[in-house]
Design a protein around this nucleic acid. Structure first.
Length: 450
RNA sequence: GCGGGCGUAGCUCAACGGUAGAGCACUCCCCUGUCACGGGAGAGGCCGUGGGGUCAGCACCCAUCGCCCGCGCCA
């Protein structure tokens, strides 16, 4: 008999079917047993009636996560036993025969919907098992949608997709710490950003994007840092102003939110979360304006700081939410000297640049902005930033031969999911998170020190 | 890196200067309509580790390791 997926059982009332899946839970009533089965499409309740002596005997052996093949008949439930609002709430499978395909050891923790409340460390130490929980699957399905829909909107907007390299020579970008690796008898590094590569590719293709793993060796043990990150990067030429970048970024996020709403309604329901609100026009302000607003509302004077602190990001979002209802805000205009060499200084006020951050629900989700496209200006910045031009020869070569006014942006995919779903820790948005203290297993002591 | 908090059963957590507890999971028994059922019994602990003070410590003090949260750095 051909396998029927659990989601399809509702269309087979009265028919005999065969399903395959896992035992979600057993409710043993003695003379009859209820069993919930799970496959990749959903859950259904099965019942072994008292006259099915062979099936009862098999049913007694089953525990959670046993893998089974079940033959049975799809019945409409008696009226008083119907459950509204859940898949297969109106039907059940009358079990005729159970074949055990694989046994499962007793679970090391409670997988029930109510009891699934694990310490992060337990969750990650048992990833192979916790990945089976609907709540986790909901998160990772949404991450999948984020990446898919980023690709879709980029392609719809005529961006060319390329794969940036992960192994890079000495890095020119300041900021984040890099991982050094052995490369034959030389040193190389893991990329911390496809930034320079996407600018080179843009110089040939006008518009490009990449979905890339990037690596940060920062000793940051926080709820929002990883050492291995999925970076969603875009770069576009022939812009008139940094506001073109903002508009494209806004359009991108809007599309991603729409796709999540469309494709992941049931996952959002499982997680019990509301997506952030994006208005038609997202509020946009300069760094100094943001700091002024914070000063006026909270009497904390950070006017003059080079960037928004974590608390500033929380507060500016509170202010914007209250004033406009938006969960997003763009902040532009950072001190030129405090940002990477390629960021475009505002011609009217060169001490501030046209860098752009997007903040959502109190956390920075993205940074971007307009870049310098004039070769002489770029060379001047390389010198002023004390960079060795030899380490970015290929990058400079692109600009030597003519590059239009341009800019771009990047999102951390995991942090995006974290903010959209209100997860308390970014590790919950990654199936196999890497951080300072973990590569699958916890890194303890000095054993295997490099 | 700095600051704060927490380490008790497989998991999630109580309690308490004087005999170590619950819920779930596990083993066994009962249960014909449950909704990740219900009832009963059992098993399971060097109270993270090492010191110290006390007649007496899981509890108080010190050290150490681990984890969580915040800050810094960053996306």
């Amino acid at each position: 008999m051909k396998r029927t997926y659990i989601k399809e059982l509702g269309t087979k009332v009265g028919e005999e079917v065969m399903i395959k899946g896992w035992v979600n839970i057993r409710r043993d009533q003695g003379k009859m047993i209820f069993l919930d089965f799970r496959d990749m499409t959903g859950i259904v309740q099965g019942v072994i009636l008292p006259n099915q002596t062979e099936a009862l005997e098999q049913g007694k052996k089953l525990r959670q996560e046993f893998v089974v093949e079940v033959n049975g008949k799809v019945n409409e439930r008696p009226e008083r036993n119907k459950k509204a609002g859940i898949l297969n709430g109106n039907i059940e499978l009358e079990i005729l025969k159970i074949t055990i395909l694989a046994e499962a050891a007793p679970l090391p923790f409670d997988m029930s919907a109510d009891g699934f409340n694990l310490d992060l460390i337990t969750e990650l130490d048992n990833r192979a098992l916790t990945l089976r929980h609907p709540r986790n699957q909901a998160v990772f399905k949404i991450l999948e949608t984020v990446i898919d829909s980023f690709r879709e909107i980029m392609k719809n907007e005529s961006f060319f997709e390329f794969q940036a390299p992960c192994i890079v020579p000495a890095t020119a970008e300041g900021g984040a710490e890099v991982f050094k690796i052995g490369y034959f008898n030389k040193a190389a590094y893991l990329t911390q950003s496809p930034q320079l590569y996407k600018q080179i590719v843009m110089s040939a293709f006008e518009r490009c994007f990449s979905v890339n793993k990037i690596f940060r060796a920062e000793p940051s043990a926080t709820t929002r840092h990883l050492t291995e990150i999925i970076s969603l990067d875009a770069e576009m030429a022939f812009i008139d102003s940094w506001t073109d970048i903002r508009d494209m970024e806004e359009k991108t996020i809007k599309y991603i939110l729409e796709q999540i709403k469309k494709n992941n309604a049931e996952h959002l329901k499982i997680l019990g979360v509301e997506l952030p609100v994006m208005l038609d026009k997202t509020p946009t302000m300069s760094l100094r304006e943001a700091q002024q607003k914070i000063f006026e509302a909270y009497k904390r004077d950070n006017r003059g700081d080079k960037d928004l602190s974590s608390q500033d990001e929380v507060e500016i979002c509170e202010i914007v939410k209250k004033e406009t209802g938006s969960d997003f805000v763009f902040v532009y205009g950072y001190p030129t000297k405090k940002k990477p060499f390629y960021v475009y200084p505002n011609p009217a006020e060169p001490e501030f640049n046209e860098g752009l951050d997007m903040i959502c629900r109190g956390r920075e989700l993205s940074s971007g902005g307009r870049r310098i496209n004039n070769f002489e200006q770029l060379e001047k910045h390389v010198k002023e930033w004390n960079l060795d031009p030899k380490t970015i020869t290929m990058f400079l070569q692109a600009f030597k031969y003519g590059v239009p006014p341009e800019g771009g942006f990047a999102f951390g995919a995991e942090r995006l999911v974290m903010q959209f779903l209100n997860l308390p820790n970014v590790r919950q948005a990654v199936i196999f998170p890497r951080d300072m203290n973990r590569i699958d297993e916890r890194l303890e002591g000095t054993e295997g020190e490099f």
